[in-house]
Amino acid sequence: MPLFRTALVLGLLAAVGPFAIDMYLPALPLIAQDLQVTETHVQTTLTAYFACFGLSQLAWGPLSDRFGRKAPIFAGLGIFAVASVGCALAPTIGALTGFRALQGVGAAVVMVTPRAIIRDIETGPKATRLMAMVMLVISVSPMLAPLAGAGLMQIGSWRLMFWVLCGAVVLSLLLTTFALKETLPEEKRTPIRARSLLAGARILLTDPTFVGLTMIAAFGFASFFVFLSSASFVYTGQFGLSPTGFSLAFAVNAIGFFGMSQAAAPLGERFGTLPLIRVAVTCYAAFNLLLFALVAAGHASLPLIIGLLFCANAFLGLVVPTTMVAALDPHGSIAGLASSLGGTLQMVTGGLMVTAASPFFDGTALPMVGAIALCSVIALTLTTVMLPRIRAQGDPVA
């Protein structure tokens, strides 16, 4: 398939999972009110989604190596559809949390398989360019999904969002059937054997390149997950924004991330992968630490928070596609397993950070930006420690 068409198809499929998060964000305070639970209880529905979204990738990756890329997509989207109906009908926060977890299981497949498909057809800077194009397509989710959610809240309850997600799954199934080419031929498929999976996992987890780059991206993702779980309460509570106003503010931060991601491939080609990652992580951490210092000093204005998060997320947009591609590059023979293990580490890290930070959230900006700054400091520390080891072992991504 032509590069643009491939990116468009993969991006639309991969956007299903983020769309299920982003459209839901403006409704979090309303859900807490409707189900008569606390902010922390509602945040648990996001944590459950993230955790299952991450852990399930461990299964979808090997399944995609065994049965090809398309069959697992059909299965995962079917699970997602059933879970969406359950969310729409959930009578309690417990039921909603359970069905959100099941949604995460199904949505995980469209995170794993696009990465593996990219590795099937491209490597190096070309793969980074394709990954960045896929992320550009995904960017419609954080920019439009919260607005769509706010709009749906004007004509119905928060439950309507999950019926809309069912419709999105139908479109995704049609897209997979008619527009997605199978990229893993029969002769290259790998049987699922516990011994081979453990051997592959051992190779990946003892590879400084894979572990280092994956965990740098993981704490970058974690900072974004912290923002996702708390921003609606901060923006609507502390700053009095409406659901639509929150959606617009959220979109500004997403534009920084996805806009800059398009520069990742050409900058990587010009300056090298590792130098780009080092500079981008440093700038990402610097903006987050500056934001935390200013908010802690009492300067928690909405324009300041939006502006500095925009800058920080812009540099994170350079980090994520570059590290994701570079981590997979040396492992083409187990691309599905590498993609799933990497995705699991990233999503579980994000879920754990949200869980650890949740007790400190009080509806104000300081705990949110503090947790985001902590994630960025950990990412910077990993960058400082791991990148010299990657360069020292002469890895081709250097």
Rank of each mutant, 00 (worst) to 15 (best):
G94C: 12
G94F: 11
G94Q: 14
T97A: 15
F99M: 15
F99H: 11
F99A: 08
L102M: 15
L102E: 00
Q103C: 06
V105Y: 01
A107K: 03
A108P: 05
V109T: 11
V109L: 09
V110R: 00
A116M: 10
A116G: 12
I117R: 01
D120R: 05
D120I: 08
D120Y: 06
I121Q: 15
E122Q: 11
G124V: 06
G124P: 07
A127W: 00
A127V: 07
M131C: 08
A132W: 00
V134E: 13
M135E: 03
L136H: 01
I138D: 00
I138Y: 13
S141R: 11
P142I: 04
P142S: 12
M143H: 02
L144C: 10
A145D: 01
L147M: 12
G149R: 02
L152D: 00
I155N: 01
S157P: 09
W158D: 03
W158K: 01
W158M: 08
R159H: 15
R159P: 08
M161A: 02
W163F: 07
W163E: 09
A168G: 06
V169Q: 03
V170E: 12
V170F: 14
L171K: 09
S172M: 08
S172T: 00
L174V: 15
F178G: 06
F178M: 05
A179Q: 06
A179N: 14
A179C: 11
K181M: 12
T183A: 05
L184M: 03
L184K: 07
P185T: 11
E187M: 12
T190G: 05
